[in-house]
């Protein structure tokens, strides 16, 4: 090795050299596009302006036309309903499963492994399976519900504007349960056992232990799970796109699908970028809220 690299790879400065490839790469592929999205939200970018090779600055006009679009309030409402409902039920079911899994019983490890392996099922695959299970004509779910006597006639799950959002939410809840179990179960294993033994000695029952010990002790984990759940759910695109494409009409339109449609179907990239910026703002609010809460707790 020649003298120069040898000197570069010694001492504290070497740290930068190790970092360099990753940093440069991320700046080009993520940093720049992020910056460009924000810039584009304030520019007129359509196929027309692109072919002329210019991107005129138009101030807030993109945001104004996005807000004036009747589909936007629907997408915003759907996004919030979809995210909150999914995160809430995923969390409740995930917590219950995590608590059960945390107790010793035979076959626990195999079962836990199986559940975890569900986490990485490609969303595209789950979307397709459910699309088919909810099928009106020969779907498994209609058949099953009729069989056990809960419905009298087949439901048009994905074709009916009233049920479509519910259907994609159900699918997404199913998808997100393993993720919640993984996070919450790991939080549970980290709890100190002696506190529980002390509580048992003091005569606390199962529910008291859950309400007074487990939940308070788990607060950091719970907050993190909810925040990550919110961030990962707000951006869900593939499940909805595969199952309904945002339809019927606008019944399952969410912000990501609206941004996609605006950019890649109507080629109005400026407005698509404006929707993206609004989404970024929402994510930022959640992140700031999360950091604030954890800091106040002194964690």
């Amino acid at each position: 090795m020649s003298a120069l690299p040898r000197r570069l790879f010694q001492g504290e400065r070497a740290g930068y050299l190790f970092l360099l490839p990753a940093a440069v790469f991320l700046l080009i592929t993520v940093g720049y596009p992020l910056f460009d999205t924000i810039r584009m939200a304030f520019q007129e970018v359509t196929l027309g302006t692109l072919s002329r090779g210019e991107r005129p600055f138009i101030g807030l006009a993109n945001f104004e036309s996005v807000l004036a679009d009747p589909a936007f309030p629907i997408a915003l409402r759907n996004s919030l309903v979809f995210t909150v409902a999914s995160v809430f039920f995923q969390f409740i079911i995930g917590l219950a499963l995590a608590i059960i899994l945390n107790e010793a019983f035979p076959l626990r490890h195999i079962f836990r492994g199986l559940l975890l392996s569900g986490w990485r099922i490609p969303p595209i695959v789950s979307g397709t399976i459910f699309l088919w299970m909810f099928n009106y004509d020969f779907g498994f779910i209609n058949f099953f519900l009729e069989k056990i006597g809960l419905i009298d006639e087949p439901v048009r799950w994905l074709l009916n504007q009233d049920y479509a959002l519910l259907t994609v939410i159900l699918t997404n809840i199913w998808l997100g349960i393993p993720f919640n179990v993984i996070l919450l179960a790991s939080g549970l294993t980290g709890l100190p056992e002696d506190i529980y033994e002390a509580a048992t000695v003091d005569g606390a029952n199962r529910w008291q232990k859950l309400a007074r010990l487990t939940l308070p002790l788990m607060k950091p984990t719970i907050l993190a799970t909810l925040m990550l759940g919110f961030i990962y759910t707000l951006r869900v695109f593939d499940v909805i796109w595969v199952m309904t494409g945002g339809g019927p009409v606008n019944a399952t339109e969410v912000l990501p699908t609206l941004a996609y449609r605006e950019s890649f179907n109507r080629f109005n990239f400026g407005e698509g970028a404006a929707i993206s910026v609004i989404m970024l703002g929402m994510l930022l609010v959640v992140a700031v809220f999360y950091v604030r809460t954890t800091n106040e707790e002194g964690m």
Binding site: Y32, T37, Y232, F237, A259, S263, F269, S276, L283
Partner: peptide
């Protein structure tokens, strides 16, 4: 944190400029 946040970005946010690029 910056590196972490790149993973959390909604794909559609970065795709528009990347598509044009």
């Amino acid at each position: 944190f910056f590196i972490l946040s790149t993973r959390m970005l909604p794909p559609v946010v970065v795709t528009i400029p990347i598509f044009l690029m």
